[in-house]
Amino acid sequence: MDFIDYYRVLEIENSAKPEDIKKAYRKLARKYHPDLNPNDKEAELKFKQINEANEVLSDPEKRKKYDQYGKDWKHAEAFEKAGRSSGTRPSGGGQRAYSGRFSEEDFSDFFSSMFGGGSHRDFGGQRGSEVRYKGHDFKAELQLPLSAIYTTQKHTLTIEGKNIRINVPAGIEDGQTIKIKGYGGEGINGGPKGDLFITFVIQNDTRFQREGSDLHVQEKLDLYTAVLGGEIQVETFDGKVRLKVQAGTQNDTKVRLKGKGFPVYKKEGQFGDLYVTYKVTIPQQLSDKEKELFTELAKLRSHEKN
């Protein structure tokens, strides 16, 4: 557990006046407010830190204790015992102007060890005893390999000890979030349950590159087929297909296989395209006979040019 310099967190001098603290806190809280920085974990952490710093520095009693013991906070209790005659007790003070979505569990270990378990403030607003209210939304992340989302599949998630079976539609995007209604926290006073938001992280376990619903792949093409034309076998996501290669095919030629790409999200039966890029391979370690024949070919070419 490290010492936290709350003055540095709020970017103020140790001699800052209460109004400077309030001003600095409000400015930083506006910058890092979680509603303005969705899915930004760094901003969320920063917001927690500035809330904690404000909790201490805006409360004269807490600030006094913090200033007094500072880096020696580990010995604060011993100091307290020694000077018990002063008999001050931390009050509930402090002005938390921002609700965010935080509870006192979000305070650092440093804060808890110095001031105990937070100041029991209700950050969510007033709790009307008979008011029905919607429960909290839950967030979860589901990692799936690309090959698993080629078809619609059922997956079982464990959220808060409960198993939830969900249908993952084919073609879901990396980073996409879906909402499962009513699978969040319990409602208050019989209010509706919150919702569950699942964000998908798709890892590519295939040799295909995905671009929306289109797929891209590179295929080796031997020199002779590239020059003379012929037929090759290409592996697509759902099996092999035979492709005709035109005579004189250049390296990096791209061909499109319509409908052989990835499924389009929530459009059953619709698929993107597969783009195959030919990579012509040049033979190496030629035998004497091959060298002779290639030289012959080269000569023929140069005669044609002249």
């Binding site: 607003g125 007033q126 709790r127 009307g128 008011v131 029905r132 919607k134 209010g191």
Partner: peptide, 12 residues
């Protein structure tokens, strides 16, 4: 649905 009054009371 939830009444506006309920929502406002809860959130102050």
């Amino acid at each position: 649905m939830i009444t506006i009054q309920t929502f406002c009371t809860y959130h102050g």
